[in-house]
Design a protein around this nucleic acid. Structure first.
Lengths: 186, 186
DNA sequence: CGAGGAATTGATTTCCATCAATGACGGTGG
DNA sequence: CCACCGTCATTGATGGAAATCAATTCCTCG
């Protein structure tokens, strides 16, 4: 998916991610997009400052920005909820900054897992400790700023220590306490 | 400065920074606050998710959130400019994430310098290659996720290579090209 | 002048990247 | 059906970037 459009986007089904392509050819994943997420960047600007890519088959709902603006004129509440949405994104971004700046490899991955778990749990009534997470190790690497090789090693130790297991697109958490001790921000 | 208040804040004079206190005692600086900056987090929520600290003597203008909301009801444009402000902050946060995730020590510091220079230049008509930047090496370290010791080493090589010099609260840029080659995001 | 915080510099250690090889699948086509 | 690929994950060996530990110097300020 490219970067310019006259539309506002909402993720209805499937996973995707936002990323920046770096000058050196690497890429940084800024965040993952789950069903229900609004592409907040598209609310205001024609041109997004990041790129978007699908991880699975996805369904996206679009709305002309002009139409949205017209609606806003009639009903202010819409704008406030949009603002809420931006604020949530800002908070998530700040936490990611803190994790990348201060955390070790293990801690960063633990933090990513916790963040994803929370977002999935918010969307589903079912509360299992097994989550469908369709990420390759390469995606985790690009999200937390490590090499895929090192991600593999960390996931291996998580398995050995019976903390968590991510394989075949399923994240299973054995020791939530330990995961939180590693990756929580307070 | 603590985290809760009924007011919206605007920085009028002086420097400050937003940060998160980490569980391990370290802190991550999320961003620096320059004159003209709106504390966007305070637009919506009583409770900020970060803390704020002054770097110099500062002057801050406050407005009751209730009053702001009343104004918005009368004049929608205010809300749109507030949204613009949030969007700008989101973009900056995304770039910081990319820098922390993918850049080396030198590159991160170069990136921080470029970001600060741009923000200062936006505010001043005068365009010198000397900028007042009242940061200790500790602040740089906390902002880019390095130790103060290593920040000192990187700054030393910047001086040796005649790229830039930050000392005594003044950032002087000798080789903008090189700085951009190191720290630009595209 | 002395004290204490900030910066510099050197020595050593640790963590993660890099390089390289191998194994496990799933798909494709002969 | 099975040989051949490409992608992904795992594992080992090595190197390098930054952290850590430890002095020492340089300030500013009381």
């Amino acid at each position: 998916m490219n970067q310019t459009s006259p539309d506002v986007y909402v993720f209805c089904a499937g996973w995707g991610f936002r990323f920046l392509q770096m000058p050196n050819g690497r890429r940084q994943i800024l965040g993952f997009l789950l069903p229900g997420d609004v592409l907040a960047g598209s609310l205001l600007h024609e041109r997004l400052h990041f790129s978007v890519k699908a991880l699975t088959a996805i369904q996206v709902s679009t709305m002309k920005r002009a139409e949205l603006h017209a609606r806003v004129a009639k009903n202010l509440r819409i704008l406030w909820t949009a603002a809420e949405c931006c604020a949530g994104e800002a908070k998530a971004a700040d936490e990611t900054i803190a994790a990348l700046g201060q955390f070790s490899a293990e801690e960063r991955i633990a933090h990513l897992f916790l963040q994803l778990m929370k977002r999935i749990a918010d969307r589903n009534v079912i509360r299992d400790e097994r989550y469908r997470v369709p990420l390759r190790q390469q995606h985790i690497a690009d999200a937390v700023g490590l090499t895929p090789v090192h991600v593999s090693r960390v996931l291996s130790t998580f398995r050995e220590r019976r903390v968590a297991d991510l394989s075949n697109g399923v994240l299973e958490v054995f020791d939530l306490r330990e995961l939180q001790r590693l990756g929580a921000l307070n």
